Simulated assay, not measured.
Amino acid sequence: MAHYIEKEEDMETSKVDDAPYRFGEYGPGYLLRGPRTDIGIVRLRPGDDASNHYHAELEETFVVLEGEATLWLDCTRQFTLRPGDVHRCDPGEMHYFVNESQANFRALFIKAPYDPDDGVQVPWVPGEPVPDLAPGR
């Protein structure tokens, strides 16, 4: 399906089912970008994960639409997210998703304020030591 964003004067629209996922069939897919927020869908197939990262200045909120995934916060706390769950990650809070279920997982995400460069990747997966981070985080 082709992704499109319609613009009419000051209004933009997009379709949730047409998100252009970063890795083809999975990953994050942006629906609207800026000027004040980013809105998108993250899709994880069974066994997929979304890399551990944090945002220095922006918050990211997730609204689970379908499926189930484990959310790890700061590499120490884990939560199972299911449809209808809403979770906000504060600036500086590392977050990592993994789909350990047998069904696809999809969640809407909202990042604000808009800053396309505010994302710090921190390599980590469950079972590894908590990473040392640079000063200032």
Results as ranks from 00 to 15, higher is better:
Glu8Ser: 15
Asp90Glu: 13
Leu44Glu: 09
Ile110Trp: 01
Lys111Gly: 03
Ala112Thr: 01
Arg33Asn: 04
Leu31Cys: 00
Leu65Asn: 08
Ile41Asp: 04
Met94Val: 02
Tyr30Gly: 07
Glu68Thr: 05
Pro46Leu: 11
Glu100Met: 03
Tyr4Phe: 07
Arg82Glu: 15
Glu8Asn: 15
Arg88Phe: 14
Asp17Phe: 11
Tyr4Asp: 00
Phe97Glu: 05
Gln78Val: 00
Gln102Tyr: 05
Gly127Ser: 08
Tyr54Met: 12
Glu59Asp: 10
Gln78Pro: 10
Arg88Cys: 15
Met1Tyr: 12
Pro83Val: 04
Met11Asp: 06
Pro116Glu: 13
Val42Gln: 07
Ser101Lys: 04
Pro129Cys: 08
Pro131Glu: 09
Ala103Trp: 09
Val16Lys: 10
Glu60Gly: 02
Ser51Gly: 08
Leu31Thr: 01
Ile5Ala: 05
Glu12Pro: 01
Ala112Phe: 14
Pro116Ala: 14
Asn99Tyr: 02
Glu8Tyr: 04
Gly40Leu: 06
His55Ala: 08
Asp118Met: 08
His87Gly: 01
Arg137Pro: 00
Arg36Ile: 13
Asn52Val: 03
Glu66Val: 13
Thr70Tyr: 04
Asp85Ser: 07
Trp72Met: 06
Arg43Ile: 06
Arg33Lys: 09
His3Pro: 07
Leu31Asp: 06
Asp10Pro: 00
Gly67Glu: 03
Glu66Phe: 11
Arg33Asp: 08
Asp118Pro: 09
Pro20Lys: 06
Met11Asn: 11
Arg45Ala: 13
Ile41Thr: 00
Leu73Phe: 11
Leu108Tyr: 03
Glu25Tyr: 11
Pro135Leu: 12
Arg106Met: 06
Leu133Pro: 04
Tyr21Thr: 03
Leu31Gly: 01
Gly29Trp: 05
Val125Phe: 06
Gly40Ala: 11
Asp115Lys: 08
Asn52Met: 01
Gly29Thr: 00
Asp17Tyr: 10
Cys89Asp: 14
Ser51Arg: 09
